[in-house]
Computed example of a mutant assay.
Amino acid sequence: MKLDSSIAAVVTGGASGLGAATARALAAKGVRVALFDLNAELGERVAAEIGGLFCAVNVTDDASVDAGFAKARAAHGQERVLVNCAGTGNAIKTVGRDKATGELRHFPLAEFEKIIQINLIGTFRCTAKSAVGMASLDPVDDGGERGAIVNTASVAAEDGQMGQAAYAASKGGVVSLTLPLARDLMAEGIRVNTILPGIFSTPLLLAAPDNVKAALAASVPFPKRLGDPAEYAALALLMIENGYFNGEDVRLDGAIRMAPR
């Protein structure tokens, strides 16, 4: 798909990190970009920077997502590109012991469900609702392409660490969605791919102490540094622009394989 001013895109989690980098990269191609996020301050700032549109959206809520797509389409037209970057995580062991009392406790199920709702179901919700709109469009080329979707998993989908049961399960679900989604949508001319980022320099990691960041960077085989969100964005754009890229899950991680902890 040729990315230019004729294309509209939606980026979830677009106010910061990987999503903001992707929104900037799309806008640099002339694409009309709408950002879905809960952080209005950052979202409005990025939207103003790239000439885009901010939509306050909670990906766990049907009505909120519907309202976001309605606002984006009213301003930019039906999107042909969706990049799902909205997500979160936690670090809770399946069974833990209270340091003060020694009491054994299991992973709070409400916290497990929260991660699944945001990372996995939120991704599917936005994908399904966007794909309905994409399928209504005329193809952009003789091959019948109507749209392209990029989802965000994590290397934790394949080598989750201690305390990442919920996060790894949610991201593993996103990976497992990729091929069935590509197959479901092939008749509509919509491609689906997934990126599995490693340790990236996102706002969460930037807030960590310098020694922690240095240790994380040193754990990457090569290059020995944190990933740059612009590198994620470059791969996302490649997946969108290369019409033969479909049904793939790609690690972007400097060859890291996460240790147990």
Rank of each mutant, 00 (worst) to 15 (best):
F69E: 04
F54C: 08
E103L: 13
A157N: 04
M134D: 06
K93N: 15
R257P: 03
P108I: 10
I50Y: 03
R225T: 13
E188C: 14
T178L: 01
K93M: 13
F36P: 03
V174H: 02
L238N: 15
A47W: 01
L238K: 14
A215F: 09
Q78Y: 12
V132Q: 12
I121V: 15
L26D: 02
N242R: 12
A165D: 07
G147A: 11
P209Q: 08
G14S: 04
A182L: 07
E79A: 15
G30M: 03
K224F: 08
M134L: 11
N211I: 10
F245S: 09
D98S: 12
P197I: 03
I149Y: 05
A34C: 07
R73L: 09
G172R: 00
A218E: 13
K114Q: 13
A182H: 07
V250Q: 09
G68Q: 02
F54T: 05
C126G: 03
R261C: 10
A70S: 12
D98R: 13
A128R: 13
R125S: 03
T22Y: 02
P139T: 12
V33L: 02
S170H: 00
A40K: 14
T12R: 00
F69V: 06
K93Q: 14
E44A: 10
V250R: 10
N58K: 03
R97F: 05
G17R: 00
G51K: 07
K93F: 10
R183F: 02
D228G: 08
A15F: 00
P108G: 12
A25F: 02
A20V: 03
E145D: 14
G102F: 03
K213C: 06
L177W: 01
R191M: 06
G13S: 00
R73V: 11
V95D: 10
T88C: 10
A15R: 00
T152R: 01
F69R: 01
V10E: 00
T12E: 00
A75P: 08
L252A: 05
K213A: 09
A74K: 13
A8V: 01
S154G: 04
S5Q: 10
R97C: 12
G133V: 10
P197H: 02
T127K: 02
S6H: 06
G14Y: 00
P139S: 12
